[in-house]
């Protein structure tokens, strides 16, 4: 690969370390509870669980690549889910079947993606045109999106979909869960966008030095708006998966996913100050998290302990990534 992101190579990349972590976690869990962790039932159930927050982590990744952040991902996901749910409930109804149901499902999905794109556009305008710091722009807009969803539903869950809706979140294609298929497609698409398109390279370089991007005549406004639109669209897809799996939509679903998405992106080696990040790293981070939490689940460890371990893992990986190990080597040889 001639156009590498950084000169860091082979074994010194954060991705390599993450791959080791993922494998170690997998093996450890498999060793501790072999018959249950390695059961096909467990593996399939893991594959159903992680895509929804993994997709949000992808959205976080592309904004972090530009040195920004998107704190509105969960708000966008819930808003799009609520709007789609209202369409499905009011126009199709729980009893709809066949072509009618399918038609309304596609309509709802289309609207969801459009709403996600619009929400992203709103964020992009705030960041690019008005010059708000991304963290504040998306903090505010996230509240607005959540607020609109609350106002539309009065805060209660929307349910009563046609049966076909459940397919997105619960079906399998040739044994592969549909949410996983969606995630793999999106991850691959994001990888291609970031490494094989003009837009992706510009976004990375903007993240590395925004001022130099200005002086290199990169159209920064257009670039940032596209970044946040992509983030919004990814969030809306996550919203659809959540809606289908829960068979309902609510304004405050998955509020813990926001920090989880940030955590995964950072764990995956994405530089929160911009300029570096690889989809592969994020995928490995997602897998590590999922192996860890499923394994701990088998071992009867509470959900709360998982949160503890996630946080500890994040800090551990950051300490490893930022410590200048060569300095220690030198200091030792010096004395």
């Amino acid at each position: 690969m001639v156009l590498r992101l950084l000169s860091k190579q082979g074994t010194s990349t954060p991705e390599f370390r993450l791959a080791i972590i993922a494998v170690v976690v997998f093996l450890a869990m498999a060793a501790l509870s072999p018959d249950r962790f390695l059961s096909s039932q467990n593996i399939i159930s893991m594959a159903f669980q992680f895509p929804e927050f993994a997709i949000l982590a992808l959205a976080m990744t592309i904004t972090m690549m530009t040195g920004g952040i998107d704190l509105s991902v969960v708000g966008v996901a819930n808003l799009t889910a609520v709007i789609s749910a209202l369409i499905l409930v009011n126009f199709a109804g729980a009893d709809a079947t066949g072509a009618v149901a399918l038609l309304w499902l596609f309509a709802a999905l289309g609207v969801a993606v459009c709403v996600g794109a619009l929400a992203g556009l709103f964020n992009g305008i705030l960041v690019a045109r008005l010059g708000l710091p991304p963290i504040l722009a998306t903090l505010g807009s996230g509240l607005v999106f959540t607020g609109i969803a609350v106002a539309m539903t009065g805060g209660s869950a929307v349910m009563g979909f046609p049966d076909v809706v459940a397919w997105i979140g619960n079906a399998q294609l040739l044994l592969v869960p549909v949410p996983l298929v969606i995630f793999v497609l999106l991850a691959a698409a994001l990888h291609v966008i970031l490494t094989k398109t003009s837009f992706g390279l510009k976004a990375t370089m903007y993240g590395a030095n925004p001022l130099a991007a200005l002086f290199a005549a990169i159209d920064i406004n257009k670039l940032l708006i596209r970044v946040y639109v992509i983030s919004g669209v990814l969030s809306s897809v996550a919203g659809m998966v959540v809606m289908s799996r829960a068979n309902s939509a609510k304004a405050d679903y998955g509020s813990s996913y926001l920090l989880l998405a940030v955590l995964i992106a950072v764990l995956g080696g994405v530089n929160p100050y911009g300029g570096y990040g690889r989809v592969m790293g994020v995928v490995l981070a997602v897998l590590s998290m999922q192996f860890l939490s499923s394994g701990l689940n088998m071992l009867q460890v509470s959900n709360f302990a998982r949160e503890l371990i996630w946080g500890a893992l994040l800090i551990f990986v950051m300490v490893v990534n930022t410590t200048d190990w060569s300095r220690f080597g030198k200091a030792r040889s010096g004395h």
Binding site: L6, S7, N209, A213
Partner: peptide, 8 residues
């Protein structure tokens, strides 16, 4: 202003 120092 001129260079993206961490890029190739």
């Amino acid at each position: 202003e001129g260079l993206f120092l961490t890029q190739s």
